[in-house]
């Protein structure tokens, strides 16, 4: 009987630890959300909401917006491929997997084929370093070679890699590592955007695209708060908060307009208009902070 009891205890103890660990790793526990900066009125229905997720637009979206806004390609601002060798901790690998993902999105958007292949190669190495299993064929040279000229196919390859990493890490109870990849990608995308703008003759559209990142930053901070016990994430929070304070100086006024739903096409169009009050000084200030943050991520 005593042996049976020991066996049961051996079974029970790891489960108890798992349960504690799992609850900490949920994106955001609703009880921790009272100090939310989102001001979206959660208090009213706080009891009902079991889970809140925060999503950050992917670096692909940001690169696409920049390209459409008339930005130009400047390879000198990207993280050097050779730097990957110095990323030998889990957190550095995760952060720079995100950074290189943003670099790849940028090179791909501007049809820089060789550079894209080079970035894919370091991304594969970092994914392996993090123990993320590769789907058969994802990084196959043949698949990349066949598709490299095709912008859309390359886009699917990039999406595949990052979606698989996020899914694998979250399902393996490594949500904080997934969050670090997102953090690295977002910071690098903002760094690129604030670096390619012409400060002597700034494009209004690029400035506005940068200003709109204030929404994504709000979501990113909320996402990271779900891992506030992670010492690496805690390390970067003060700079993210500083960035947030600078974004607060930028005003976005939304005028609500008609919402049209087409039941046949299954599409809803929201015609709101934004008036964005952003000055080049705001962008310069953002650049100073994001450069400091990015320096920490890639060193």
């Amino acid at each position: 009987m005593f042996i049976r009891l020991i066996i049961i205890l051996i079974f029970l103890i790891p489960l108890a630890f798992y349960s504690c660990n799992n609850s900490k790793n949920s994106n955001t526990d609703i009880n921790d959300d009272n100090d939310s900066t989102l001001n979206v009125g959660y208090q009213d229905h706080v009891q009902k909401v079991k889970k809140i997720f925060y999503n950050i637009p992917s670096p692909i979206e940001m690169a696409s917006l920049m390209q459409r806004a008339g930005a130009e390609y400047d390879p000198s601002i990207l993280n050097r491929i050779e730097s990957f060798e110095k990323y030998n901790t889990n957190s550095k690998m995760a952060l720079n997997l995100g950074v290189y993902g943003a670099n790849l999105s940028y090179t791909r958007m501007f049809d820089q084929i060789q550079e894209s292949v080079n970035y894919l190669s370091v991304i594969r190495k970092l994914s392996e370093g993090l123990g993320i299993p590769q789907q058969p064929g994802t990084f196959a040279v043949s698949r990349i070679e066949q598709n490299i000229e095709n912008r859309d196919s390359l886009l699917y390859i990039i999406t595949d890699i990052y979606a698989s990493a996020d899914t694998y890490l979250k399902e393996s109870n490594r949500g904080s590592t997934a969050a670090l990849i997102i953090l690295g990608g977002w910071v690098e995308a903002l760094y690129i955007a604030t670096s390619i703008i012409d400060y002597n003759d700034p494009s209004k559209e690029i400035m506005e695209r940068i200003a709109e990142q204030k929404y994504s930053l709000t979501n990113l901070i909320e996402l990271l708060k779900g891992y506030d016990n992670d010492e690496i994430i805690a390390l970067y929070m003060p700079l993210l908060e500083k960035l947030n304070t600078t974004f607060d100086k930028i005003e976005i006024i939304t005028t609500k307009a008609e919402i049209i739903t087409d039941s046949v096409k299954k599409v809803t169009s929201i015609s709101n208009q934004n008036k964005i009050n952003v000055a080049i000084e705001n962008i310069k200030e953002l650049k100073t902070i994001v450069t400091e943050l990015r320096k920490e991520l890639i060193k």
Binding site: H45, K48, K50, K51, Y162, A163, D166, N219
Partner: peptide, 21 residues
């Protein structure tokens, strides 16, 4: 796919929310 997994086990009466831009 935006690449971010948002899944949870929910029961009858449960609400979940996703904030995004």
């Amino acid at each position: 796919y935006n690449g971010q997994l948002n899944s949870a086990v929910l029961s009858e009466g449960d609400v979940a929310e996703l904030l995004l831009t």
